[in-house]
Amino acid sequence: MFYRRRHAPHPIVYCTACYVLISLLLFIITKRSVHLVILWNVFLANVPLLLVLLMCLEDQRRDSFRTGLLGVLWLIFFPNAPYLVTDFIHLQNITFYTTETTDVYTTNFWSWLGLIQIGTAVFIGLFSGMLSLWIIHHRFLKRLISPLAELALLMIFITSGAAVYIGRFLRLNSWDLFYPVHFITQITGHINSFSIAFSLMSAGAVGIGYCVFSVLLMTAAKISRLHQ
């Protein structure tokens, strides 16, 4: 007789294990370290959601200091989610055409699996990051008047856009902020028209992505209520 174990692991555990194994297999077969880098970047992109969940727990304990500290850490780590989009540049090192012509796609399975690994990483990272931002936004709406909440959201977009530029071009990480002198020295020498344009472009992309995510989330909630 078939039965389901009461304490069986959540399906996300199996999905995570599968993704990790695929990434390791790709690295072993192709010798491309980018597949390990992508795995690490996916982990960093999920840190903001973990921090937000911890914030919700601290709210229940009414610990304002820890809640504020987690909020600052969230802002520091959130840009790791939209940063994942720039990892698509690593596809340039993967061949998708035959060597004879660019009109015929390769049948190399590992090339296509590499595409799936990077694409899946971007989807997971963006979904997790936008969900954490949605929770943060609604915390603002509960505690601030609407104009201030929207202004705070806009500042997050701009900060995230600048952080994507800093991470991709200056190769600085979230934890480099804990070394402010070195961090400020690095970024002050790279303020130019391109860095500003790229940062604003990235900020716009984050804003558009969040708007789309919010609409989809609200639509799904409305459909769910209709079927109750």
Rank of each mutant, 00 (worst) to 15 (best):
193 S>T: 12
208 I>E: 00
203 A>M: 08
127 F>V: 12
155 M>K: 15
212 V>P: 01
9 P>E: 08
40 W>M: 05
188 T>R: 13
67 T>R: 02
183 F>G: 06
158 I>H: 10
50 L>D: 03
64 S>P: 11
134 W>I: 09
170 L>W: 01
15 C>I: 15
143 R>P: 13
97 Y>W: 10
130 M>Y: 12
205 A>H: 02
93 N>V: 07
80 N>Y: 00
132 S>G: 07
151 L>N: 12
125 G>T: 01
180 P>K: 05
107 T>H: 09
132 S>C: 06
140 F>I: 13
47 V>G: 02
185 T>I: 12
124 I>D: 05
121 A>K: 03
135 I>T: 09
191 I>L: 10
103 D>L: 14
219 T>G: 06
197 A>K: 12
144 L>D: 09
143 R>H: 15
67 T>W: 02
156 I>A: 10
166 I>V: 11
126 L>G: 01
31 K>P: 11
52 V>A: 07
91 L>H: 00
12 I>G: 07
24 L>I: 10
112 W>S: 01
106 T>E: 05
204 G>N: 09
57 L>E: 00
70 L>Y: 02
129 G>A: 01
12 I>W: 10
2 F>E: 15
54 L>M: 01
132 S>Y: 03
86 T>L: 04
41 N>R: 00
225 R>I: 13
1 M>I: 15
25 L>I: 12
177 L>N: 06
183 F>E: 02
68 G>C: 05
21 L>N: 02
25 L>K: 06
115 L>I: 00
54 L>P: 00
124 I>P: 04
142 K>M: 13
164 V>A: 04
226 L>F: 13
108 N>E: 10
65 F>G: 04
155 M>F: 15
9 P>L: 09
29 I>M: 12
200 L>C: 11
11 P>Y: 02
31 K>M: 12
156 I>W: 07
166 I>W: 01
3 Y>F: 15
228 Q>K: 15
40 W>A: 08
195 S>F: 03
80 N>P: 00
42 V>M: 04
195 S>K: 09
101 T>F: 08
130 M>K: 11
220 A>H: 10
100 E>H: 14
145 I>P: 15
37 V>G: 03
141 L>E: 13
139 R>G: 14
148 L>F: 14
157 F>T: 07
87 D>C: 04
46 N>K: 02
45 A>D: 04
1 M>P: 15
115 L>S: 00
105 Y>C: 08
193 S>K: 12
75 L>G: 08
37 V>S: 06
32 R>T: 09
200 L>H: 10
111 S>V: 04
183 F>L: 05
67 T>K: 03
63 D>S: 01
8 A>N: 13
211 C>P: 07
147 P>Q: 12
195 S>V: 10
74 W>V: 06
39 L>D: 02
169 F>Y: 12
167 G>M: 06
183 F>S: 00
190 H>V: 09
228 Q>N: 14
113 L>N: 00
181 V>F: 11
113 L>M: 00
116 I>F: 08
28 I>K: 11
78 F>S: 04
29 I>K: 12
80 N>M: 03
191 I>A: 10
6 R>A: 14
60 Q>S: 13
